[in-house]
């Protein structure tokens, strides 16, 4: 496996309701075993973990649940090409900035990506996958709607990772 051509997929989540979806997708991708060896799959709860994993990457895929005006299970995809003078994540997606900024020691995902940009640690390409959740109550299991959507959204992500 090349040291310099890699894609990293990180599923973010927590044990609370549909916030688990990032972890579940990462589990399915890892279990399936058909991804190219150049693709690494990880799970994370804290966006700051990303900073430890960005070396020698060509492409970073991050995946998380979101709340908003969307049908539960709906998959959204954003792509961010990191070229010189690129706007920060916060400038590109001001609403996204609020998604995971509820922690304090814990920087939000957008904030971590901005920090990595300023520290010249980002790969050239960032892909953000977000899945609309139905409920995020503490300690709840994932909703039936997201359980049903899980194979489809995983396949969509897997198809792209197969060509990473």
């Amino acid at each position: 496996m090349s040291n310099t051509t890699q894609a990293l997929f990180v599923g973010f989540g927590s044990p609370h309701g549909d916030d688990q979806i990032g972890w579940l997708i990462a589990d399915r991708l890892a279990r399936d075993g058909t991804l190219p060896t150049s693709v690494v799959v990880k799970k994370a709860a804290i966006p700051l973990d990303l900073l430890d994993w960005l070396e020698n990457l060509d492409c970073l895929h991050v995946c998380d649940a979101f709340q908003g005006a969307a049908i539960p299970g709906e998959l959204r995809r954003w792509e961010w090409d990191v070229v010189s003078d690129v706007p920060t994540m916060t400038e590109l997606f001001p609403n996204f900035m609020r998604l995971r900024c509820q922690g304090s020691h814990d920087f939000g995902l957008a904030a971590v990506l901005d920090l990595a940009l300023r520290l010249h640690r980002l790969p050239h390409r960032i892909v953000v996958w977000a899945i609309a959740g139905d409920g995020f109550d503490v300690g709840n299991s994932v909703s039936e709607k997201l359980k049903r959507a899980l194979p489809t959204v995983t396949n969509s992500i897997q198809n792209e990772l197969n060509h990473a």
Binding site: D52, L115, R118, L119
Partner: peptide, 25 residues
């Protein structure tokens, strides 16, 4: 206002600090 702004002014120091944090982890 933030570590992000600090990183812009002091990238070497912040990178060094993040590497220390990584060692702890």
């Amino acid at each position: 206002d933030s570590g992000i702004e600090l990183a812009e002014r002091f990238p070497d120091e912040v990178n060094r600090g993040l590497r220390l944090k990584k060692h702890g982890n």
